[in-house]
Design a protein around this nucleic acid. Structure first.
Lengths: 182, 182
DNA sequence: CAGGATCTATCTAACGATTGGTAGGTAATT
DNA sequence: AATTACCTACCAATCGTTAGATAGATCCTG
């Protein structure tokens, strides 16, 4: 039996799903409350303001995403396997869950986000750059720190763009066509 | 003397600027009206509904963007110069204008957009794939139609992602670090 | 050519719905 | 007694949208 998660967790799950489809304005306290089975005012008990909820969403997403990637220093996994794992994480979100990367979407809207939310989107990318940089530093071939960072940035940009493209064209194969180049 | 553009044009300009910062929910009839110097109801005279305005925004953006790229068959410009021109179009939007690609942002939100708006975002990408496919078909080296299309998709995805990353990290140099790999 | 009709572009004033948020109460648990 | 987790009942602001009026330009007709 899967025991019911507490309300705060349910709120985060529902809000994340909505945010990953419509962005920061894609979820509202009332819509979340309705789906969780409480009243909108009760959502404010758990998350006092929308920007607090949005920031919590970003933080939680980043933590979960990185935890799912595992240790980039793990000597038992090759750097190329780690890169495939990274690509697979994006692919699963798109193909299996039919969802956009939360921070990719927030990143696109970053200019009009409350500061704490924008900061979480930024944090997601910084952590991702760090993870991939470890992987690329391990990969065969000489690379300066700048080259390592550039390689990481290129992979992230390509994957975020691939999700947007595949969703806009309503064709998941577009994602594979793009990532075959990585 | 630059003569004042008509109101419909002014509305489109203001709405586009707002949409490129905050997405489809980033512009409102009232905000547009205030900036243009008319009342919100008068905006409805020019664009009867928000989805019509959103679609007009996308169509106009696509036309202007493609016109700015020029003819991809132009024998006087090398394919590599055309690719640089394509990258430069995105770079200018980001660095000089401080704006996101309209259709990149709409594409990220595509799941919650009115159908006609989503269709325009899709149309933008289809046209871009077409333009780049002509360029890559001209480039030296043997490439199957599938490989040509994949190369086009990879470039577009990388550029859209590069804009998101550069804006999230608040560092335009990130764009250059990403595109140096193209 | 005068004058009525129509068209264009705007206005005021409102509509119902939705938004994030608050105050204050309540029942159960600690 | 205090805390937790909810509730009802609001609030002001904003949303897209509509109805109906108006002033000025343009057009058609007698």
């Amino acid at each position: 039996m899967t025991e019911a998660p507490n309300k705060a967790e349910q709120i985060l799950r529902v809000a994340e799903r909505m945010a990953r489809q419509g962005g920061y304005n894609g979820f509202s306290y009332r819509d979340i409350a309705k789906e969780v089975g409480i009243k909108a005012a009760s959502v404010h008990y758990h998350f006092p303001s929308k920007e607090a909820l949005g920031a919590a969403l970003g933080r939680r997403y980043t933590e979960r995403f990185l935890a799912g990637l595992g240790d980039p220093e793990d000597a038992e996994v090759s750097s190329s396997a780690l890169l495939e794992r990274y690509i697979g994480a994006f692919r699963r979100a798109l193909v299996d869950e039919g969802q956009m990367c939360l921070c990719g979407l927030l990143g696109a809207e970053v200019a009009e986000l409350p500061r704490p939310v924008a900061a979480e989107a930024r944090h997601f990318f910084e952590k991702n750059i760090g993870w991939l940089s470890v992987v690329f530093a391990r990969a065969p071939g000489e690379r300066s720190p700048e080259q390592v960072r550039a390689a990481a940035l290129q992979v992230i940009a390509t994957l975020e763009g691939a999700m947007i493209l595949a969703r806009s064209l309503d064709d998941p194969q577009v994602f594979d066509a793009v990532t075959q180049g990585l």
